[in-house]
Design a binder for these strands. Structure first.
Lengths: 252, 252
DNA sequence: CCACATCGGTTCGCTAGTTGAACCGCTGGT
DNA sequence: ACCAGCGGTTCAACTAGCGAACCGATGTGG
C-alpha cells in the first residue's frame, strides 16, 4: 500500500541474506526490479553498513553490523541469555547437540545451538525456520499451546520435510496428547533423516509457551532405551529456563 | 545523499533495536522525525514481519524474523559454523566462557559465546561491540593485522572502558609485540572489571585475521599461573579454526 | 474533579525523492 | 571477432513520502 521504497529496501536485505554473496543483476532479477533501483538501495545500505561488496568479485553480502542490530531482537535475546546456562548443563549431561527455538508466527526459529565434540552430529544453521509439526521443538511447542492455536495450525498444510514427518492430523493430535502426559516430545527423523530429537516447551508465567529446547543426535546414539533419561533431562532444563525467565521478569 | 526513506527505515530498525520495547513518541524523538513518518515506517516494517507491537502496552520491538534474516550475515555465519565445534572443545578444556568475535570496521562484534556452568562467569550479550584495544580478542586481532592497519587504528581515540584499559599507545604497541611473540593476548580487566581474558586471532589463508577467539573468566580463577596453559589452548583452538576455514574455502 | 501534558494515531496539500528504460564500457566464452 | 552478460550511470516523468496540525484517550498533579 505505501512506503514502497521501505519495502524495496527490506526485500533487498532479505534477498541478499538468502543468497549470500550475490551480484547486482541476480538481485534485480529475483526482486523483479530495475538494476538502478536495486543498486541505489544497495549503495544506501552500504553507507549504513548493512551490506558490503567484496572487492574482487563485486558481490554483495550482509555485514556483521546487520547481525549486531538484529541479534537484539526482543523476545530472543532475553530468553537466549537466560537459557544458555541451562542449555550448557543439558549439553554436558547428554553430550548431544542442544537447540533453543523461539516462535515467529506459525514457525519456530532456531535461536541458539550448543554443539557436541562428536564427529557425527546434528547440524542446523542458526536462524533456520523449523515447521511446528516436523520437529521435537515444534511438537513440544504445539503441545504447550492452547487448543485453538493447535486447531488453527492444523488447518494449514502439513508439508513433509522427510519421509518420516508426521503429516496426518490425527496422528499428530495423538502425539500431542502423549507429549502432554509425558512432558517431552520425541521426533524420529521427521526433520532430518538419521536425526532423532527430544524436546520440551519453556513455559511463561501464564503457562504460555515462550519457546522450546531439544536434544538432537544421530538415531544410532539416541536410541529408544535412552528416551526416558534424555527426555526427563530436557524437560527439567525447560522447567529451569522457565523459572529463571519468570524471575528475570521477561516480558513478551 | 539520497534514498532517504531507506535511511529512515534503517534508522528506525536500529533505534528499535537499541531500546527494545519502545513507544512511538519516544522513537520519533530520538530519530528527530515526525510521528507520522515513524509510524508509517513501523507499519510497513510490521507488514514485513520485522517489527511487532505488544498488544497491551503498544510498544514496538524487533521480531525473531529479523534475527533469522540477519544471522546469515556473510562472514559471520560461515565462520561461526566452522568455529563452534572447536570452541566447544576449548570450553571443555578450560571450563571458562569462550567468545568468538568478528571484525566490523574498526571494532569487533561478539558473534558467538559458549557459557560455563559456573555461577560466577563473564557475561557479554551477543552482538556487543568490542573496542580493539580494550579486549583480549581485539589485541590479538590487532597483533595479527598489518602494521598500516595498526597505525591507522592508533590514530583514533583510545577510550577507556575500565580503569585498567590500555590507552597508552606505546604500552599497546609493546603489548602487540609481546602477543606476536607469544601467540596469544592477555587482557586483565581491561573490558570489564574483575574479568581476565586470553585471546588468539584466527588467520585466513593469506595470514590475514578473520576474527578471534578468547577464554574469559573472573580474575580469581584465571590467575597468572594458568596463563600459559589457557593461552596455548586458545592459540591451538584459533589455529584449528583457521585450518578448518581454509579447508571449507571460506571467502571474505 | 478538572486542567494540562502526553500518549498513539490520522489527515492532507505540497514537494522532493524515487523510478526504470535506455545507455555505457568491460569481461569472458565461443 | 563477436556477442551476451556483467556492474554501473543518466535523466525526465511522476508518484510516493513528508510533517504541521489535529483527534480522542489516558493519566496525573493541584
Amino acid at each position: 500500500m505505501s512506503t514502497q521504497s521501505v519495502v524495496t529496501a527490506v526485500r533487498v536485505i532479505e534477498a541478499v541474506s538468502e543468497s549470500q554473496p550475490v551480484g547486482l543483476s541476480d538481485l534485480a532479477r529475483t526482486l523483479d526490479a530495475s538494476k538502478a533501483t536495486v543498486l541505489r538501495v544497495l549503495n544506501t545500505l552500504a553507507e549504513l553498513r548493512w551490506v558490503q561488496q567484496s572487492e574482487l568479485a563485486k558481490l554483495w553480502s550482509l555485514t556483521p553490523h546487520a547481525y549486531a542490530v538484529a541479534v537484539r531482537s526482543g523476545p530472543m535475546s532475553s530468553l537466549r541469555d537466560i537459557a544458555i546456562g541451562h542449555m550448557n548443563t543439558l549439553q554436558l549431561a547428554t553430550t548431544e547437540t542442544v537447540h533453543l527455538a523461539i516462535p515467529d508466527g506459525d514457525i519456530l526459529i532456531l535461536a541458539e545451538r550448543l554443539d557436541t565434540p562428536h564427529v557425527l552430529r546434528a547440524f542446523l544453521p542458526l536462524g533456520s525456520k523449523i515447521p511446528l509439526h516436523a520437529s521435537a521443538t515444534g511438537i513440544a511447542f504445539l503441545a504447550a499451546s492452547e487448543d485453538s492455536f493447535i486447531a488453527e495450525y492444523l488447518a494449514s498444510a502439513l508439508d513433509s520435510v522427510t519421509e518420516r514427518t508426521l503429516t496426518d492430523r490425527d496422528v499428530l493430535l495423538a502425539e500431542i496428547s502423549a507429549v502432554r502426559a509425558r512432558g517431552y516430545s520425541i521426533n524420529e527423523e521427521g526433520l532430518s533423516s538419521g536425526i532423532t530429537s527430544l524436546g520440551a516447551a519453556i513455559l511463561g508465567p501464564g503457562g504460555d509457551p515462550l519457546g522450546s529446547v531439544s536434544v538432537s543426535g544421530p538415531s544410532s546414539r539416541i536410541v529408544p532405551e535412552r528416551y526416558t533419561e534424555y527426555g526427563q533431562a530436557v524437560h527439567a532444563a525447560a522447567r529451569s529456563i522457565g523459572r529463571s525467565a519468570a524471575q528475570a521478569g521477561t516480558r513478551l
